[in-house]
Design a protein around this nucleic acid. Sequence first.
DNA 1: TCACGTACTGACTACCAGTCGTTAAATAAT
DNA 2: ATTATTTAACGACTGGTAGTCAGTACGTGA
Lengths: 234, 234
Amino acid sequence: MGITERKEREKEQRREDILDAAERVFRDKGLAAATMDEIAEHAELGKSTLYLYYKSKEDLYLAVTMRGGEHLYEMLKAAASTGEPSVKRVWNMGEAYLAYFNQYRHYFQMYYFLENSQLHSQVSPEMSELCALADQKIWGVVVSTIQEAIDEGLFEKDVVPIQAAVMFWSNCNGLMRQMDRQDAYWEKALNINLEETMQKGNMLLMEGMMTQKGRLEFEKAMNQQQTNREKEET
Amino acid sequence: MGITERKEREKEQRREDILDAAERVFRDKGLAAATMDEIAEHAELGKSTLYLYYKSKEDLYLAVTMRGGEHLYEMLKAAASTGEPSVKRVWNMGEAYLAYFNQYRHYFQMYYFLENSQLHSQVSPEMSELCALADQKIWGVVVSTIQEAIDEGLFEKDVVPIQAAVMFWSNCNGLMRQMDRQDAYWEKALNINLEETMQKGNMLLMEGMMTQKGRLEFEKAMNQQQTNREKEET
DNA sequence: TCACGTACTGACTACCAGTCGTTAAATAAT
DNA sequence: ATTATTTAACGACTGGTAGTCAGTACGTGA
């Protein structure tokens, strides 16, 4: 009898429905201003029902955040699987992160919460664990691509993959934060394009990591991409 | 008659007393878990009195944050005024930011709030303005030192000071966030020292900005510092 | 038809930011 | 010296929210 299975599916569906409602409300109002009552209303459920599926408002918030993490993971994986040389694919991932930021800004913003552990008092250990795993999955894509570049002699042998990864992340993330907060100010008052700045930063980091061979491969791949784009335009 | 002046001083003193109490409570509990009642108790005042001096809990929090900003400003200014070559002083400021992080961790953590504009709904425009000014003061120190380095031909002419500054900031800040959140994990599980990583990142950025002359000056200044330290130890 | 378990709920509690009418004390005016 | 006025402070209150819990409705299996 498939009753247990059906019930399992239905339960899973409820979890998703609640997540949909929560995503909408959190997106519109942010964590602090969103209320569980409002989420419940959108989900067409009583507030107390939400607590049967998620242990706290913060847990629910993180569950939505992890949806965003899944998107990022997919985009990074795609960027790391183009068949281009590894150095170019490392670069691609910076661009993919930027695309993620532009396409899924609200998910990006949710990471503010994840990164501030002072706010995690209401987060269940289980959810913390899930987040840590999702996090590792994402780092994994970046690290393994950098490792490839080292193995192929395109990055210097003394580059430490996870260390390089956190440097790229730090540069990208910091710049995107500025974009998120006051892109207009940088553009108008300071005449600085932050997207370009981010690319410049990644470039400087890569320059310091690549071998001579890596630099050649990278330049070739960039030119190749340029040519392909021009072809597509005709 | 100095009555008005005395009252003015007393009022200012109250503001400081409240700030002291708030700093203690915020430091121990963070923004969310701290309550205005508790701050009032520490300040030996009624809760409603706090609202005569600060418009909201968030305003009070930012006022404490700005105290921290003042410390950072002083430390950066000191690092930028050692009489060493400008390139070395740019480097110093990264080290100073790190020292600030280690010495005033609780202030550093308060910036999480400042950087998340989603949480600013209760912040008064006046306080926002004050924060923006304090922010600019800090950027100013960094930018002008980088400008010196360019003028002296130690950084390449095509370096844009404010752009370089935001790159350094981004690298430092991102790494410190990781240190703050899970330094132990990086150290033990991944065998990565994040302070070194931060320095390495700054170094890569500088390498990409310095002229040949700048590299020589920088190396000389670093050796000089090393020698001085060895002397001090004897 | 009845007993049981499950999913769900509305009413409730505890708590907290922020407000308001009042009080007490210091200062100014008479 | 006495009264009026301004100022600083406060306690009691409001509105709103996260999270709880006793109870209900309904599908399932006997």
